[in-house]
Amino acid sequence: MTSLLSVKNLTLSTTLDKKLLVDNVNFEILEGESVGIVGESGSGKTLTALSILGLLPKGVSQDSGEIIFQGKEISQADKAALQDVRGNRISMIYQDPMTSLNPMMKIGRQIQEAARAHNANDDEANVLKALQDVGIPSPESCFSSYPHEFSGGMRQRVMIAMSLLLRPNLLIADEPTTALDVTIQRQILNLVDEQRRNNAMSLLWISHDLSVVAELVDKVIVMYAGRIAEIGSVEEIFENPKHPYTAGLIGSLVKRKHQQKLISIPGNPPKPWTVANQCGFADRCAHVTQECRTSKPELVGEGNRSFACFNPMKGALL
C-alpha cells in the first residue's frame, strides 16, 4: 500500500509566547488504512489533526514540519491548493455537532455548499442520497430544515453526510462521539466504520477512549504531553505495550470479566512546554530513572512499531 498522508516533524506552539504544544510528531497513513490517535485532553491530538487541514485555531502556529498528502506538501501550500484539498480529498468531522453547523443556513444548502466549493455535483438528489446513506429518516424534510431542529446525533450524521459527499481519500474524525449520548455513540461509530469500508477511504480517528479506537482502527498512535509515546498495530498495543503510559491506559480500561478494581494512573498530565527536555510521563511513571528527568526519549523502532521510552515494559501484559 502506498502512503496517503505523512506528517513529518510537526511542531506546534503558541504564537505569542512560543509555548510548546506539539513536539516533533511523525506518522504516516497508508491508503485505505485506519489510524487512531489516543491521548488525554491537552496531549495535542486535536491540534495535530487540525494542522493537517491548516485549521489551527488563532494563537497556535506551526513552527516546523511538513504535511505531505498524496506526495505534495500542503501545510506551506497557497490558499487555493489548500482549499482544493479541504472537503474534497480530506474531510473532517468535529467534536461538537451542536456548534459545528451554521445555525442560520438550511442543512441542504450547507451540504450543497461543500459540493459547490469544488464544482462537484450539487443536485438535490445527490444530497438527499448522501443524507439517506447516513441514516437520516426523512432526507427531504432534513434538506430544508435548520440545524436547531435536530438532535446532536442527527447533526453529527449530517456532518458525516457532508464530509463524505465528495468521496474524500481521508476522513479525519476528531472525537465525533464525545458530545453524544452513549447509545448514539455506538450508532455513529458503526456508521463511520461502514462508510469507510464502503468508500475504501483512509480514516484518522482521534479519541481519548482507547476502547473505541480499538474497534475501528488498524494502527494506534498514543500521544502524551504533546509527543508520540507509542505507535503500533491494535494487537501490539494491547498485547505488548512498550510505553508505561500505554500500559497504564490499557490497565485502566474497565474489564467486567475480572471484577477487579479499576486501576488509574496517579497524577495529572503535564503541560507540554513544561517537559520539553525530559520524558513527559516521568512524574507519573513507576519505572522512572534519573535519565528520564534529564533527557528526552526519542521515538525508537520502525515506522509502524515504535515507542519513546528509556525503560520500556518487558513481556506481554495480558
Binding site: D96, L101, N102, E113, M162
Partner: peptide
C-alpha cells in the same frame, strides 16, 4: 471564532464566502 466557521473553511469554501 465559532466552530461552524471552521467547518465552512474545512469544506473548502473560499475566504470571501
Amino acid at each position: 471564532e465559532k466552530d461552524f466557521v471552521r467547518t465552512a473553511i474545512g469544506k473548502g469554501v473560499n475566504e470571501r464566502r
